[in-house]
Amino acid sequence: MIDSREASAALADIDDIVQRVKQSQLYELASLAAVWWGILVFAGNLVTWLWPIHAGQAWVAVNVVGVGGLVALRVFNPPHHPHGAAHSIRILLVFVLFFAFGYLCTNVVGHFGPRQLGAFWPLYFMLFYTLAGLWFGYAFVAIGLGISALTLIGFFYIGEAFPLWMAFVNGGGLILGGLWMRRI
């Protein structure tokens, strides 16, 4: 038989591994979501750069398809806790509030031009990514801060090719970040 100190150490080992499993599962789902948004954001920025006249429709499509993909991801990977349905509704509300607040900032309080919009939405999105990382894992913080820094560099120093820069920085960054999450 073991003493209480050894028993505590064994329980601490169990807690540690359970946390790692939960984080690993979270990273797996987050990785799929990041790659999905990365592909869409890459396409949205590319359309904005090549055919600026169609940028508006492209971004509406990106957001609708993006949120649709997340809903599908949720349906195929249902949450394993007792209040799953309420949790899913909260996530949907998070997106509604996210887009509503963003719209309020960019179209009501301020009147952002295409370049400002191209910088605002990734920075705004990455702010949530970074904040989430404070609870859910350092990978979110690294991806959030990395893409935010590159977005600001592009905003201040890249000229006409800013949407192309954002295709690689935001779209490519999310894809690479998502693939990186699967390896950690």
Partner: peptide, 17 residues
């Protein structure tokens, strides 16, 4: 189960549905 690595294996698998 008490062996440290087997405890970790079981803890990891038990954390899943």
């Amino acid at each position: 189960i008490h062996q440290p690595l087997r405890l970790k294996i079981m803890a990891a698998l038990n954390a899943l549905p």
